[in-house]
Every structure is written in C-alpha cells, then in structure tokens.
Computed example of a mutant assay.
Amino acid sequence: MTAVLMVAVGCGAAGLTTALARDDGRYANSPLKSWFDQLRSEKGPCCSDADGSAVSDADWDSKDGHYRVRLEGEWIVVPDEAVVKGPNLAGRTMVWPMYLDGKPVVRCFIPGSMT
C-alpha cells in the first residue's frame, strides 16, 4: 500500500485542511519526471506526477469559457489561475486537487487531448 503523506509543506498548501500525496518514488526514472517536477500554475507548484491524477475524458470539459472537472462525483470549476500554461508533454488530462474545509479545490489542471 502506498504511504500517505501530508503535503502541506511540500506543496505550499498553507491553510488547507488535508492534502494527500502518493509520491513513493516509483516515478523516479520516468523521462517526464523533471517536467512534472517543474509544473506550476499561478496558484503555485503542482508538485509532481505522483501528486496529480489522470482524468478521463468523461470527467472534464469546458463550460462558459472555463474548464471544469468532476472530483468525488461533483463538477468543480477550474479557476483560470489553476490552469497550467504550456504544452502537455504527458498528453493526458491531469488535475492536482487539494482540500479546503473537506471540499476539493483545484490547485493545478492541465488539459489533454480529448479522444
């Protein structure tokens, strides 16, 4: 089982109640590791691939000029400042959620190519 870590310090999540990470070193040799490690939105660093989650095409879209993503069964509007700028080298849509008062909020989001 993957070790659960609090990432309040590692991801700069001050003020967030709970944030869980799954970085157990399994992506250490990934050719995209350095790219994931430098990803950031205007909200701050996204942390790494291990902290983000891939999102299926059915669980993200755009509405009224903003992205939105389904987290825990609820559609969450992605704040513009959470969208990662630049090319998506991973190709798949990813989201880095954090939790504020027990509710998911988006720290980082990078759209992929819908197939």
Rank of each mutant, 00 (worst) to 15 (best):
D61W: 08
M98H: 08
T93L: 06
R68N: 12
V78N: 00
A54Q: 14
P87H: 09
C108G: 03
K63I: 09
R107P: 00
V78R: 00
G65Y: 05
G73P: 06
V69T: 07
P87A: 15
P79M: 06
H66A: 15
L71D: 01
D49E: 15
I110K: 05
F109M: 07
V69S: 04
M98S: 07
E72H: 11
L71P: 04
V55D: 11
C47P: 02
R68E: 13
P45F: 12
V83L: 08
G112A: 06
D51C: 15
C47V: 13
A50Y: 09
W60D: 07
S56G: 14
L89S: 11
D51G: 15
P79H: 08
V77H: 07
A58W: 07
G44M: 09
V105Q: 07
C108K: 01
R68S: 11
T115Q: 10
M98T: 04
M114G: 04
T93V: 08
L71C: 05
S48P: 05
D49W: 11
R70D: 08
K63T: 10
L71A: 04
A50H: 09
P111Y: 02
S113E: 10
V106R: 00
E81F: 00
I110T: 02
A50Q: 15
W96S: 04
E72V: 07
H66V: 10
M94K: 09
P45T: 15
K43V: 04
G86F: 05
R68H: 13
P97W: 00
K63L: 13
R68M: 13
V95P: 00
G65F: 05
P104C: 05
R70W: 08
C108F: 01
D61N: 13
D59R: 14
D49I: 07
R70A: 12
R92W: 06
K85F: 03
L71R: 09
D64H: 10
D80Y: 08
L100V: 03
P79G: 08
D59V: 04
V105R: 05
E81M: 03
S113F: 04
D51N: 15
G86E: 06
G65P: 03
Y67E: 01
V95G: 02
M94I: 05
P87R: 13
W75Y: 11
V83C: 07
V69G: 02
D61K: 14
T115A: 12
A50D: 15
G44R: 10
G102Y: 03
S62V: 09
A90L: 07
G65A: 12
K103H: 10
I76A: 03
V84D: 04
K43F: 04
S48L: 13
D51R: 10
S113K: 11
D51W: 14
W60V: 09
F109P: 01
K43D: 08
K103P: 01
A54L: 13
P87N: 11
V106Y: 00
A82F: 02
P87C: 05
V78L: 01
V84P: 02
A58P: 04
L89I: 03
V105N: 02
G91H: 07
A90Q: 10
E72I: 08
P79R: 06
P97S: 07
A58K: 14
V83Y: 03
C108R: 01
V105A: 07
S113G: 10
H66L: 12
V105D: 02
